[in-house]
Amino acid sequence: MELDLAKEQLPSTQTKVNDNTPDYINQQIERETEASVNYYKRQGESAIRGRIDELEHEWDTERVLEVNMASIALGSSILALAANKKWAFLSGAVSIFMIQHALQGWCPPLTVIRRMGVRTLNEINREKKALENLLNKPV
């Protein structure tokens, strides 16, 4: 029973970022993805394959968030040891943000990351699948 309650309260890892991003940002990202696919509809197979390769290496929101948070935590820990112990509070705040993101699907830095146009893995994979469909389309 407790497990069922926890499942209901925790957001799906597949949709948590989109669910906690303002609609206008999600829509802007969607429009940019559609524009990219429409552009590649008019390109040759090698250009489409090149774009798919780019998508394979595109950083998603989770990776950007994890690297940024870990970098801030590491930097502030070093500063706390070397300069002033008050820097440890920044490491603590970053840890709280990561826990908040894991449990709720949102944290303050995520808003900035999404406004920068960083996409979720699902959003990247949707573009990749659409481009793969273009390659498999009979002429």
Rank of each mutant, 00 (worst) to 15 (best):
S36V: 10
P22W: 13
H57C: 00
E45M: 09
R49W: 06
D60F: 01
S46H: 03
E34L: 12
Q14I: 13
R51H: 07
A35I: 12
E34V: 11
N20T: 12
E34W: 08
R31I: 14
Y39V: 02
Q14G: 08
I25W: 13
E56Y: 11
A70S: 09
E54C: 03
G44A: 01
T15G: 11
E45H: 11
E58A: 04
I29D: 00
A73E: 10
P11A: 09
V64M: 05
E58N: 01
A70L: 03
E45T: 10
T61E: 01
G75R: 10
A73T: 08
T61P: 06
R42N: 15
A70W: 06
V64C: 01
G50D: 02
R31E: 05
G75F: 12
N38Y: 09
T33D: 03
I78C: 04
R42S: 02
Y40W: 10
V37P: 10
N38H: 12
V64E: 01
L65Q: 05
A70H: 04
N38T: 07
A47K: 11
M69H: 06
I52T: 02
E30W: 11
D23F: 13
E32G: 09
Q43D: 05
D23N: 14
I29Q: 11
L65C: 05
D23S: 15
N18A: 09
D19K: 14
L74F: 13
S46Q: 11
A70C: 08
T33N: 07
L65F: 04
R63N: 01
I48V: 03
V17C: 07
Y40L: 06
E45W: 03
T21L: 08
E34N: 14
W59A: 05
E56P: 12
E30V: 15
L74E: 08
R63K: 08
V64H: 00
T13A: 09
R63C: 01
V37R: 05
Q28W: 13
E56H: 07
D53G: 04
D19V: 14
V37Q: 01
I72K: 09
T61A: 07
T13E: 10
D60S: 04
T61L: 01
I52V: 09
S36F: 08
L55Q: 04
L65W: 04
E58Q: 06
E56T: 14
L74W: 14
S77I: 14
D19G: 11
V17M: 08
A47H: 02
K16F: 12
W59L: 06
N68W: 05
E62M: 05
I25V: 15
P11Q: 04
E34K: 14
D53C: 01
A73Q: 09
E66K: 05
R31M: 14
I52E: 00
V64G: 00
D60I: 03
T61S: 00
E32F: 09
N20D: 03
I48L: 00
Y24K: 13
T61Q: 07
L10G: 05
I52Y: 02
S46I: 03
K41E: 07
V37E: 04
